[in-house]
Every structure is written in structure tokens, then in C-alpha cells.
Design a protein around this nucleic acid. Sequence first.
DNA 1: CGAATAGTGTCTCTCAGACATTATATG
DNA 2: CATATAATGTCTGAGAGACACTATTCG
Lengths: 252, 252
Amino acid sequence: MINYEEMTEEEYLAHCKTIEFARPCVTVDMLIFSMNKEQQLELLLIKRGGHPHKGKWAIPGGFVEMDESLEEAAARELKEETNLDGIYLEQLYTFGEVERDKRTRVISVAYIALVPAGNLDFAAGDDAVDACNFVVKQEHGGFTLYSQERNLILTQEELAFDHKDIVEKGLERLKGKVVYSDIALELLRDKEKFTIYELQTIHEALTGEAFDVANFRRSFKKKFMDTGRVEKLEEKSVDFSRKPSSYYRLIK
Amino acid sequence: MINYEEMTEEEYLAHCKTIEFARPCVTVDMLIFSMNKEQQLELLLIKRGGHPHKGKWAIPGGFVEMDESLEEAAARELKEETNLDGIYLEQLYTFGEVERDKRTRVISVAYIALVPAGNLDFAAGDDAVDACNFVVKQEHGGFTLYSQERNLILTQEELAFDHKDIVEKGLERLKGKVVYSDIALELLRDKEKFTIYELQTIHEALTGEAFDVANFRRSFKKKFMDTGRVEKLEEKSVDFSRKPSSYYRLIK
DNA sequence: CGAATAGTGTCTCTCAGACATTATATG
DNA sequence: CATATAATGTCTGAGAGACACTATTCG
């Protein structure tokens, strides 16, 4: 019998390497959100080319390599899928039901990525059979996804694996966090030059509710202007046939 | 070359079983919180009997088995450690830095358990070399742990592995969630018979701040009485030399 | 000027914080 | 009665929601 108590640390570490346990797979699954030109929230889905759930739409993801952290794996997957770096990433939740993947035991760490509007070019991704941004429509206790260009409507039940649960949890997180954090800023086209109304539309897209313009501006000024975190620019928008709006810039 | 595209699902699943990938270990680590008799927040730690970090204090945890979900693994670990069932459990965060465990790649899903006051008897646990409840003292951007009975003070840096980060994240979660959720109720000795002030002390222990009694009672009544979720009992406390306090009962 | 969007003023109601006060038990 | 804790009352200021109003551009 092996006596662990009397081993030195070196002996113990060497011993560990000789033992093999049954281990689950660990993956990262990515909720890649962005705003489209109509100021709607969109989610990137890929169409599965292989089994299981072949032909179904799913959120992109992949295995965590042995030499990368979870955060690094998420960043790598995002890069592979969208060719983007330096994007806001946030760990969401870890999904580990035994039967969530029929092939083998797969534990998936879900991440949220918030891509600034206009930066998403997922055609750059290499391994996706087919990929498409879907507009997220939030409704009473659920959501629907649809793509205008493909004339496609997906109910939440049609997603592969337990991805319905992941999307649901992600939307819940965004909804809750938008009020007390700065995540809405991450979805702006340009943090150095945006209008208050642009930010408002992001808040509205995330919460699924409409806000009063006056009240939104008031809270914006209290939160960002009074604290010196945002400054007003000289430049104004050059829209035709209406009053131009002021641009603001996030400092730091 | 194998053509995944033309396989049936059955063929593919069979094929999968023949492949072996390098896989990380997955564990659950448990933050087991409770309130002591002095109405202080406590955290259960075990003293490591084996390498690595032999002799250091750590939060309890263990491997996720192939046939149990993460939630089930957390419940099992809690049971092994404290012999308790039916305790409030909440997934906290997943820690996956490459070098967090020197032995091999270990990805740890951290859970929070909130044990009702007076129920904790960790001597019942079997696999712990040594276990002890430590009072959690929260301070400006950190915490300290101490055990009166053992005359032991632990700084956050003295914990094994990255458990300092886990505890930190757990305290943050409790602090944030206590204001808008009902988690404080989980730490009550008895949800069917408690005083408002007992609940207040839990809020104070979790946030590390003192509250005005009048204001706390007001918000308690608004949150629980006005909504019919808590009712006042006839029975009153039997303290001597002072006005007895009313008991309340959580409904459902 | 009208049309369209940007942006402000103001009223009300709710609620949190601070703190003074009353209530009810024991000895 | 004094003492100790339970429980309530009240004043204030900050802030959210509703909504009416003004400002600035183009044609």
C-alpha cells in the first residue's frame, strides 16, 4: 500500500502522473452578442455540420486545451470565429448535466462576448460550416431568434444541446447587469464617439423595455458626466433635416 | 481519411468512444458558510493532509464523477463533509488557470453552500484530516479568517491553491446578492421561527455594515409582510429582563 | 413656416437614511 | 421605579417615472 503521508512532494507529484482517472471533456461555449444596424441585439449562431444535432443551430465553442486558461480558450474561440481580439469577455456559468452531450461527458464553461457594433465579420471564421447572426427577441420568460436575410425563425427549443439554457442565462445576465455596470458601453460602435441616444437603444435592446429619453439622459449625466468618466465632444452628428446630436467620449 | 459528413449518428457515436483526448480534471470546491452563536459569518476549512500544499488550510472539494452533474457533485461533497442534505447551493464561478494545481490540469467549479445556523456538525465528515470553522472578517478589499477555539489567524494569502480568489469571489457574490435576493433567509437557524433582528444580523455579517433597526424593519415589512411571504407568529421570545420579540415565519 | 429629432424643466411619489420617541418585559 | 431591548414615528433629501415643454437643424 502506498503511504501518501510519508512521501516528499516530488515523489508525490511523480506518482500522480502515473495515475489515470476518468475525466470529462471541458469546452468553452461562446455567446457572441452585438448590435445590428437597426439597433437590435444579435447573437452569432453556427449551423452544425456534424453529429450530434447535425443541421441544428448552436452557439460556437470548442475544447479547452491543456495549456490555456478558460479565459484564453474563450478568447481563442472568439478569434477563430470572428477574427477579433481585445473584445469584452465575461464568464457566464458552467453547464455540466451528465447527458447534455450524447457522445461523452462534456462540461461546458459558457462565456459572453460583447462585440462593438459594426466590427463583426464572422465570415472570417474558418471552421464553421455555416454561420449567421440572429436577432434576439426577448419575450415573457423566453426568447426567439430570427434572421431577416435568410428568412429564418428559430424558437428557443430548436437550438442544439442545452444551448437554450445557455442563451437564457446569458440574456438574464445582460438584463440584470446593464443597470448597474458599464457593459452597454461595450456594444457601442465607438466608445470614443457616441450619442446618448445610441447608448439608450442598447439599454433598450438588452432589457427589452423602452426608456423615457429625459430620464435616461438625466441618469446618464449623473453616472458618467458628474463623475468625469465621459466628456462631451465639440463635434456633432451631421444628419440632414434635423437637429444634430452631440457626441460623447468615454475617458480612459 | 474519415468522412464525418457521411456517417450516421450511430457510427459517429461509436467512433467517438475510440478517440482519446487529453482531458483536464474537473472538481467542485465548496464554500460552506454558516452563522455562529455570536452571529458572525463562518467558513468551513479543512487542513490538507497530503501534497501539494500539505498542512495548509483549504476549502473542501473533490472530483466530479462521470455519472453525476455538477450540482449533484456539490451536494455529495457537502454531504460527505457535513452530513447535511437539502442545503441551499449556488454555483459561483469556474476557476481554470493552467497552473492552479501543480499535479495536473484541474478545473474547479466553485459552489456556495449556506447552512442554517446550528446545523453544522462537520465532525461527521469522514475524509477530512482536520476541519474547522473560521470566522470571516471582511475588510477593505480583502478578508481575514480566524478561529477562536484554536487561537488561529489566517490571512487570505495563507490559503492553499487559488482558494483566496474563490473565497473573495464568494464573499463578493454574497454581498451583492443579499440586497436583492432571499439568501439571508438560508442562514437563519429556523425559517419557520425567527426574529427580524436575527435576520438583520445576518445582513450585517454578509455586508460587513451596520443597519439602522427602524429602517431595516421597514424594508423587511415592505419586502416580506406586504407581499404575504412572511407571517407574524403569536409566540414571542422568552428573554428575561426585557421586552420579548415577535417571531416570524416564512410561508411556503 | 413645418417637420423631425435633440434636449430641458418640473411635478410627484417612493424610499433610504438619520434620529427621536414610545412600548413592554423583568427585577 | 430603573433598565434593557423591541418596535414605531417622522423629517429630509435623492432619485425614478411621467410628461409637457423648448431648441436647432433643413428645406
